[in-house]
């Protein structure tokens, strides 16, 4: 009986301290179990909210760009540009380009020499053009003609008539006549297209003014022969119904 009395008196004496400690303990437990997760969640909403807003803005911009994109135009330009910068060495198109240049410029191509190197896909033999992802094929062309013909030839080369070529060395032999014997040394190129398109929220690349001018120039070229599709509906294909 005496012990119970002592216990109660003890409780009574320290009731404020015990109650306060109890409240404090509950606050600590609730803080860890409820407040901190809530604050964490709120912080996450705040931080991600900003990112999400930016992402929505970016995706909206990309979506509207893609919706207004002239698919057929870019598809045609893509096919046409493959004549200028193909995905492989494509020596057939190089020869074709020289034939075309000869025909259009009026000069005579005496000799062409291009180092195709190893025909297999040995990447060790490939050399990239400085500052670009394109690969180089060293070429040398010997042409004969007058200055006007040579001017036409070089103009045609720089106006994307056939394969893209650049010349950085020239030797002209002049044999007292109007005809010049010119050896041009330079490079033709091929470009392996990137295998991936990037993430869905990556912005669409934009063209600069000079690049847009090239795009319009390429668009004026005619489509490669092998990509011209035949409209099957216009061809007579016999009776549609066998019983008529």
């Amino acid at each position: 009986m005496k012990t119970k009395f002592d216990y109660l008196s003890y409780l009574h004496q320290y009731e404020i301290l015990i109650a306060s400690s109890g409240v404090l303990m509950i606050v600590i437990v609730l803080t860890f179990n409820m407040l901190l997760p809530n604050l964490n969640h709120a912080n996450q909403i705040y931080a991600q909210g900003q990112d999400l807003k930016k992402k929505v803005e970016l995706l909206t911009q990309k979506d509207s760009s893609l919706t207004s994109l002239n698919y057929q135009f870019y598809k045609d330009v893509f096919l046409k540009s493959s004549q200028i910068l193909p995905e492989n060495k494509d020596y057939v198109s190089l020869i074709g380009t020289f034939d075309l240049l000869e025909k259009q410029s009026g000069i005579t191509i005496v000799r062409t020499d291009f180092q195709l190197g190893v025909v297999s896909t040995s990447s060790a033999t490939l050399q990239r053009a400085a500052g670009t992802a394109a690969f180089m094929i060293p070429i040398s062309v010997e042409v004969m003609g007058n200055l006007e013909g040579l001017r036409k030839f070089l103009d045609l080369v720089s106006n994307y008539n056939g394969r893209l070529m650049t010349f950085d060395e020239v030797t002209v032999n002049n044999k007292q006549s109007d005809t010049l014997d010119v050896v041009l040394s330079g490079r033709a190129f091929f470009y392996i297209l990137p295998g991936t398109l990037g993430s869905i929220d990556s912005p669409l690349p934009k063209l600069e003014k000079s690049q847009d001018a090239i795009l319009q120039k390429i668009n004026l070229l005619s489509l490669p022969q092998d990509t011209v599709t035949v409209d099957l509906d216009k061809n007579s294909i016999g009776k549609k119904n066998l019983f008529q």
């Binding site: 330009v77 540009s81 200028i84 910068l85 670009t132 063209l207 090239i214």
Partner: peptide, 12 residues
């Protein structure tokens, strides 16, 4: 197309 045109521009 854009990547090819950009490369053509750089090479030109």
């Amino acid at each position: 197309t854009v990547s090819r045109v950009k490369t053509i521009d750089q090479l030109s």
